[in-house]
Design a protein around this nucleic acid. Structure first.
Lengths: 133, 133
DNA sequence: ATGTATATGAGAACAGATCTCACGAGGAGT
DNA sequence: ACTCCTCGTGAGATCTGTTCTCATATACAT
């Protein structure tokens, strides 16, 4: 009971997942990461990869984007700062970006009597290295 | 061969799906719609509901939002105008909104050498009728 | 070293969405 | 109205991503 409520143990698998995620260029799927781990000899079960990725996301150490048919993960570079992502459709590489003004949708929402609880902004395109293709 | 390439037939199922979607308050899932159709006596196969919803989306008559674990559909109210959605988490009701300025991410993208191909903005909250809860 | 709660592995289970294929029906031509 | 051909449909199988189950292994406090 080190912290309030939850005890979180350190395991080799957790380290392996975190390391693999950190060394990935951009956003990767859980299955992708599992394949990479396997490739480099780290035998971590797929279920564990999912568990660890979700745990990292919960702790704010990883970002998730949902592409509709799957979710992609990446190490969070700015854990404390609210941000969104500019993602390369080709290689998954991403930049964390912050809009100049996020007030507009709060205003529009208010106009319609809505209360905003969360929002999702994702921008897809081609990174410098993937322009041609 | 009425149109270029594709022939699109009129069927009772297509009408039923379109009507059911139009009469829905907000965003609904394909399964939801299928259940509603069943409830009102229209026996339309789930696969057909999916097919028709996707067809409607292709034709610009319906909007889709992906919630990560499923996709939700709604009749598009402004087919010609670029817009995003302000969606009630509770009842699915939605308003089509347009940001004051969508130029910021094009600028930010350019700063990072990215070319933008598409973007997704979704705002979730509570509609006026669902404030308490 | 011991005990106990938590993490893991392997595969089953699940859910949403799509595919398969035999059958039914739209609709253009007659 | 009849025919024919093509496209749409229904029912269930299938696929895919993700989560769950539960017996076993292991971290870590004592």
């Amino acid at each position: 009971m080190t912290q309030a409520g939850k005890t979180r143990r350190n395991t080799a698998q957790k380290d392996a997942v975190r390391r693999a995620l950190a060394s990935a260029e951009g956003f990767v799927s859980a299955q992708d990461l599992h394949r990479r781990l396997d490739g480099e000899g780290s035998r971590v079960a797929l279920a564990t990869v999912y568990r660890q990725l979700n745990a990292l996301a919960d702790e704010g150490e990883a970002d998730i984007v949902s592409t509709g048919d799957e979710q992609l993960f990446r190490t969070c570079r700015q854990p404390d700062r609210h941000h969104h992502h500019l993602i390369c459709e080709n290689c998954g590489n991403a930049v964390e970006v912050t809009p100049d003004d996020e007030g507009w949708f709060a205003r529009i929402a208010a106009d319609h009597g809505y209360t905003v609880t969360r929002h999702s902004i994702e921008i897809y395109g081609r990174c410098p290295r993937c322009q041609n293709g």
